[in-house]
Design a binder for these strands. Sequence first.
DNA 1: TGTACATCAGTGAACGCGCGTTCACTGATGTAC
DNA 2: TGTACATCAGTGAACGCGCGTTCACTGATGTAC
Lengths: 250, 250
Amino acid sequence: MATTSGIRARVRSELIHEIKTEARRQLALEGAPALSLRSVARELGMVSSAIYRYFASRDLLFTALIIDAYNELGQHVEEADANCDPSNFVRRWTRSSEAVRGWALQHPHEYSLIYGSPIPGYRAPADTVGPASRIILVFAGIVRDAAAANALVAPYAKERTPKLSKAAAADAARLEVLALHGVAPDAIVRSLIAWTQLFGVVNFDVFGRINDIVEDVDAFFLHSVQEMVRFIGFVDTKKPPRAPKAKLDL
Amino acid sequence: MATTSGIRARVRSELIHEIKTEARRQLALEGAPALSLRSVARELGMVSSAIYRYFASRDLLFTALIIDAYNELGQHVEEADANCDPSNFVRRWTRSSEAVRGWALQHPHEYSLIYGSPIPGYRAPADTVGPASRIILVFAGIVRDAAAANALVAPYAKERTPKLSKAAAADAARLEVLALHGVAPDAIVRSLIAWTQLFGVVNFDVFGRINDIVEDVDAFFLHSVQEMVRFIGFVDTKKPPRAPKAKLDL
DNA sequence: TGTACATCAGTGAACGCGCGTTCACTGATGTAC
DNA sequence: TGTACATCAGTGAACGCGCGTTCACTGATGTAC
């Protein structure tokens, strides 16, 4: 594993890359359950047993693909967020949501790998949790920043908001410590709800279960993001909060 | 297919039932991709080719299982809804949502079959769409009834509500004609958003992708339903809308 | 009611295929002196 | 710089398995007269 020689190590990591690339290509053709080490080897012009120099089992190849997928999606969303004015929370949440859907639609099988039905018999090892949490940390960061900037207000009057149960409040408190310092419990739970809504649409979209219901999924998705932004309580900082209504000539 | 003899037909339909039952048992053990006709036959003590008297191919067995799953979930939710006071829309939406999650958690593999990643190479035929739409019609019915009873009000002030794009409004209009007569376009889209949120949580829950984030999923789910009920705009008809605040002794 | 024929369920062998993984091996590439 | 040895990549055969589907067949169950 260490840089035993330099050249050998480079060749080795190139081949690992080639194996994963070919595996992803087959993923896109046939889906995860149909992915086989033998067919990857065949396509690469090697004998099937040679793969075992690089991945000790089929499951470990899966693990590598899963980690890559989490990292790519995570990076994609991180970049979408980073490209926004940091104080424009509405835009940040919107762009990040669109980035999730965009990546998912472009890589449906990688998306299924990480957010679809679990692969039977496969248990994800611990090294997937780091990459897996990158994406949620982006969304948590937006909420945290908004709260810190006082740009997060409850969407309804207090008496119309459902009260958190003790258990739900405890979870919110735990999450606040983890990644959402200074965010009110209500807002934390609403963010989580928006988070699940996001993946609900994207799942339906990627798996083709919304086309019977909605014709223009783009439009519906955009609207759902706008509604969720409102629901979480982001205040649009681009427009001054209480601008006097006066006629302006452009 | 017709009742050729009566006895033969009964035996036949019993065996079809047994095959499906065994197939579902294996579904729960290994998941859909691992389901094989041979192992079903083996378990039933028949020779593998005998299955072909009942299902002409593996795909047709899948289709039968999918239709059954849709029907069971649909019926389960229909019953949950029907057990409520028809004019209590909050309760109807809540109970129906809980019914979805309850069924999904009790039958995770059947749930995956119909709402998880698509089975590679399998195309669902047209006879699945009827059973598939039973469930959404329940939720649509609740919204329609609430609108008809004037128990559906926008959750925010009008100027705080995002405007529907033309495309989104067109979809809403189409859905109104289909199943949501008399419901305002905004409310239709909000209902759809709540619908996707519901399946977002349930997916995460069934596939075990929320346990890292939330400890008490029951509590979170219940709260998310309450928030969505508010979000859609159901008015709780059990409590009179503008009760005068006065001290009551219990 | 009894017989001749048609229908159907289930058998068993076969076709042709693919899979993950192991193992003893050959050669080439690197390392240490 | 040159040689002896260790490391590693890749080979090819094998193990033991499972799969969907077809096909000619046997016997039992039904139907028509």
